[in-house]
């Protein structure tokens, strides 16, 4: 009992995003009961909710890296381009070489990590503002991806990739397993060691952290490396989806969705807090909206408007100011009642 009360004490914030997601899904379920139906088909679960989970994986994985970077008071705009580059590298390796699949994975993830390393060096050792340092790659990255593939979309035939793209294990899509594993590893890495605490400390106050003996600069580099690696994994999942690396469009605008997911999780862009689980919820909220829009018949011109309005509503629900305002209204009405 006492423990439970403490748990609630720690994180009153966590209910905001979860509440928003549940409300959205419940409303949709009432409007269209088919939306929340889940069937068992061809050895895997099938339904809109499963689609949402499956579709959200790339964004969620990127957002995981983004959450860490934002926690250190940085931002990584290059992730969309890293997705394209690493997707291109993986596709070209599969088509042009005989490398075993796990080597392809390792090389792509290393490429992603390497790009993250460059970002990190620019931010933390050269001292370029994160938004500018990562903008460089955001702009030039897609060109690099084109160089990798010689300007063409590369399609490939790979059983391993097919499994990642649309396979299922125990009726659950493989990519969900991948995401779950990644989230668990990250949670273990950040919360079962002191790494998460150090990253947050650096994000909240880099100067004070240095005086505490925390290697602030190195930690920032690590955050960017992690973000690059996450983007690489997301890139591979995205190309596995359709067995093609469409570099021109691969990962386009994903950085914005990832940032949004982190913000929906309740993190501040000023750094200092990393919410891993909630970031995944944030990504799910975004994907739920996208799926709803696709299946609702909204004319395409309104896609983004509808999405923006709902997200604004969610952010409003979660905002401190709104909460304060509501509680103020409540005490005022109480006072009035007392006065009468």
């Amino acid at each position: 009992m006492k423990e439970r009360k403490k748990f609630l004490d720690i994180n009153p914030k966590i209910w905001g995003p979860i509440f928003s997601l549940v409300v959205i899904i419940v409303i949709m379920g009432i409007i269209d009961p088919g939306f929340i139906q889940i069937e068992f088909k061809d050895g895997r679960l099938y339904g809109s909710l499963i689609d949402i989970l499956v579709r959200a994986t790339p964004t969620a994985i990127i957002a995981l890296g983004m959450a860490v970077v934002i926690g250190t008071k940085g931002i990584d705009l290059s992730v969309g381009s890293v997705v394209a580059i690493c997707g291109a590298v993986a596709a070209v390796l599969i088509v042009e070489t005989q490398l075993p699949f796990f080597m392809v994975v390792i090389v792509s993830v290393l490429v992603g990590g390497g790009i993250g390393f460059l970002n990190g060096i620019m931010v933390s050792f050269i001292g370029i503002q994160p938004i500018i340092a990562t903008l460089i790659l955001m702009v030039s990255g897609r060109g690099i991806a084109q160089l990798v593939t010689g300007g063409r979309a590369v399609s490939f035939d790979s059983t391993a990739m097919d499994i990642i793209g649309s396979g299922a294990l125990l009726a659950i899509p493989v990519r969900l397993w991948i995401m779950t594993a990644l989230v668990l590893c990250t949670v273990l890495l950040l919360r079962k060691t002191a790494l998460g605490l150090f990253l947050e400390s650096v994000g909240a106050n880099a100067k004070a952290s240095r005086l505490l003996g925390i290697e602030a600069r190195m930690l920032k580099v690590i955050a960017y490396i992690f973000s690059g690696m996450c983007a690489a994994v997301a890139g591979m999942i995205l190309i596995a989806d359709v067995s093609t690396a469409e570099i021109n469009r691969l990962g386009l605008w994903l950085e914005l969705d990832a940032i949004l997911a982190v913000v929906l999780a309740g993190a501040s862009l000023n750094g200092g807090r990393i919410y891993l689980g909630l970031t995944i919820i944030g990504a799910l909220i975004i994907q739920t909206l996208t799926t709803i829009i696709f299946s609702s018949g909204v004319p395409v011109e309104y896609n983004l408007i509808v999405k923006a309005c709902i997200i604004l509503a969610v952010l409003l629900i979660q905002s401190e100011t709104t909460k304060n305002y509501v509680s103020q209204l409540r005490t005022k009405s109480l006072e009035n009642r007392h006065a009468e």
């Binding site: 150090f198 947050e200 400390s201 909240a204 106050n205 952290s209 005086l211």
Partner: peptide
């Protein structure tokens, strides 16, 4: 000195942890 966003506990153990 302080790392405002972090809790009292975290602030207190940080130097030892580092």
């Amino acid at each position: 000195g302080i790392i405002a966003e972090l809790s009292v506990r975290e602030n207190m153990i940080l130097a030892l942890q580092a």
